[in-house]
Deep mutational scan, measured.
Amino acid sequence: ATNIVSKVKWYNSTKNFGFIEQDNGGKDVFVHKSAVDAAGLHSLEEGQDVIFDLEEKQGKAYAVNLRIK
Rank of each mutant, 00 (worst) to 15 (best):
residue 1 A to T: 13
residue 1 A to P: 10
residue 1 A to I: 13
residue 1 A to H: 13
residue 1 A to C: 13
residue 1 A to Y: 12
residue 1 A to K: 15
residue 2 T to A: 10
residue 2 T to I: 13
residue 2 T to R: 14
residue 2 T to V: 13
residue 2 T to W: 12
residue 3 N to H: 09
residue 3 N to D: 11
residue 3 N to W: 06
residue 3 N to L: 06
residue 3 N to G: 11
residue 3 N to C: 11
residue 4 I to A: 06
residue 4 I to C: 10
residue 4 I to G: 06
residue 5 V to G: 08
residue 5 V to T: 12
residue 5 V to P: 09
residue 5 V to W: 11
residue 6 S to Q: 05
residue 6 S to C: 08
residue 6 S to T: 05
residue 6 S to N: 06
residue 6 S to E: 02
residue 6 S to P: 02
residue 6 S to M: 06
residue 7 K to S: 05
residue 7 K to I: 07
residue 8 V to Y: 01
residue 8 V to N: 00
residue 8 V to L: 04
residue 8 V to H: 01
residue 8 V to G: 02
residue 8 V to A: 02
residue 9 K to H: 06
residue 9 K to W: 02
residue 10 W to C: 08
residue 10 W to Y: 07
residue 10 W to A: 02
residue 10 W to H: 03
residue 10 W to G: 01
residue 11 Y to L: 00
residue 11 Y to H: 00
residue 11 Y to Q: 00
residue 11 Y to K: 00
residue 11 Y to E: 00
residue 12 N to L: 07
residue 12 N to C: 11
residue 13 S to I: 12
residue 13 S to R: 13
residue 13 S to Q: 12
residue 13 S to Y: 11
residue 13 S to V: 13
residue 13 S to K: 14
residue 14 T to Q: 13
residue 14 T to D: 11
residue 14 T to C: 14
residue 14 T to Y: 13
residue 14 T to P: 06
residue 15 K to R: 12
residue 15 K to L: 15
residue 15 K to S: 07
residue 16 N to P: 02
residue 16 N to Q: 13
residue 16 N to L: 07
residue 16 N to S: 10
residue 16 N to G: 15
residue 17 F to P: 00
residue 17 F to N: 02
residue 18 G to K: 02
residue 18 G to A: 02
residue 19 F to Y: 06
residue 19 F to D: 00
residue 19 F to A: 02
residue 19 F to E: 01
residue 19 F to Q: 02
residue 19 F to N: 01
residue 19 F to K: 02
residue 20 I to H: 01
residue 20 I to S: 01
residue 20 I to E: 02
residue 20 I to Q: 01
residue 20 I to K: 02
residue 20 I to Y: 01
residue 20 I to P: 01
residue 21 E to G: 13
residue 21 E to A: 14
residue 21 E to L: 15
residue 21 E to K: 14
residue 23 D to K: 14
residue 23 D to M: 15
residue 23 D to G: 15
residue 23 D to Y: 15
residue 24 N to K: 11
residue 24 N to Q: 11
residue 24 N to D: 11
residue 24 N to P: 10
residue 24 N to M: 10
residue 24 N to Y: 11
residue 24 N to E: 10
residue 25 G to R: 09
residue 26 G to K: 12
residue 26 G to E: 10
residue 26 G to F: 10
residue 26 G to C: 10
residue 27 K to H: 10
residue 27 K to L: 10
residue 27 K to R: 12
residue 27 K to A: 11
residue 27 K to Q: 10
residue 28 D to Q: 07
residue 28 D to S: 06
residue 28 D to C: 07
residue 28 D to K: 04
residue 28 D to A: 06
residue 29 V to F: 10
residue 29 V to G: 00
residue 29 V to T: 06
residue 30 F to A: 02
residue 30 F to W: 04
residue 30 F to V: 02
residue 31 V to L: 07
residue 32 H to R: 04
residue 32 H to V: 03
residue 32 H to L: 04
residue 33 K to Q: 11
residue 33 K to W: 10
residue 34 S to C: 11
residue 34 S to D: 07
residue 35 A to W: 05
residue 35 A to S: 09
residue 35 A to I: 07
residue 35 A to C: 05
residue 35 A to G: 03
residue 36 V to T: 02
residue 36 V to L: 15
residue 37 D to I: 15
residue 38 A to S: 09
residue 38 A to M: 09
residue 38 A to C: 09
residue 39 A to W: 04
residue 39 A to N: 04
residue 39 A to Y: 03
residue 39 A to M: 06
residue 40 G to Y: 06
residue 41 L to C: 08
residue 42 H to F: 13
residue 42 H to D: 12
residue 42 H to P: 12
residue 43 S to M: 11
residue 43 S to C: 14
residue 43 S to P: 08
residue 44 L to V: 04
residue 44 L to Q: 01
residue 44 L to D: 00
residue 44 L to C: 02
residue 45 E to H: 15
residue 45 E to S: 13
residue 45 E to V: 14
residue 45 E to L: 13
residue 45 E to I: 14
residue 46 E to Y: 11
residue 46 E to N: 13
residue 47 G to I: 02
residue 48 Q to D: 10
residue 48 Q to P: 02
residue 48 Q to W: 13
residue 48 Q to R: 05
residue 48 Q to S: 08
residue 48 Q to K: 05
residue 49 D to S: 13
residue 49 D to F: 15
residue 50 V to M: 05
residue 50 V to Q: 01
residue 50 V to K: 00
residue 50 V to N: 00
residue 50 V to P: 00
residue 51 I to M: 12
residue 51 I to H: 05
residue 52 F to W: 09
residue 52 F to A: 01
residue 52 F to C: 02
residue 52 F to I: 06
residue 53 D to S: 05
residue 53 D to Q: 05
residue 53 D to T: 06
residue 53 D to H: 04
residue 54 L to K: 08
residue 54 L to Y: 07
residue 54 L to V: 12
residue 54 L to F: 07
residue 54 L to H: 03
residue 55 E to D: 07
residue 55 E to Q: 11
residue 56 E to N: 11
residue 56 E to W: 15
residue 57 K to Y: 13
residue 57 K to V: 11
residue 57 K to L: 10
residue 57 K to S: 11
residue 58 Q to P: 06
residue 58 Q to V: 08
residue 59 G to E: 06
residue 59 G to V: 01
residue 59 G to W: 04
residue 59 G to H: 06
residue 59 G to T: 04
residue 59 G to Y: 05
residue 59 G to K: 06
residue 60 K to P: 04
residue 60 K to T: 07
residue 60 K to D: 05
residue 60 K to L: 10
residue 60 K to I: 08
residue 60 K to E: 06
residue 60 K to V: 08
residue 60 K to Q: 09
residue 61 A to R: 15
residue 61 A to D: 07
residue 61 A to Q: 14
residue 61 A to V: 14
residue 61 A to Y: 15
residue 62 Y to D: 03
residue 62 Y to F: 11
residue 62 Y to I: 07
residue 62 Y to A: 07
residue 62 Y to T: 07
residue 62 Y to Q: 11
residue 62 Y to W: 13
residue 62 Y to V: 07
residue 63 A to I: 04
residue 63 A to E: 03
residue 63 A to P: 02
residue 63 A to F: 02
residue 64 V to D: 03
residue 64 V to M: 07
residue 64 V to F: 06
residue 64 V to W: 08
residue 64 V to G: 04
residue 65 N to F: 04
residue 66 L to E: 00
residue 66 L to G: 00
residue 66 L to A: 00
residue 66 L to R: 00
residue 67 R to N: 04
residue 67 R to W: 04
residue 67 R to T: 05
residue 67 R to H: 06
residue 68 I to L: 13
residue 68 I to C: 08
residue 68 I to K: 06
residue 68 I to V: 13
residue 69 K to P: 14
residue 69 K to C: 13
residue 69 K to E: 10
residue 69 K to F: 14
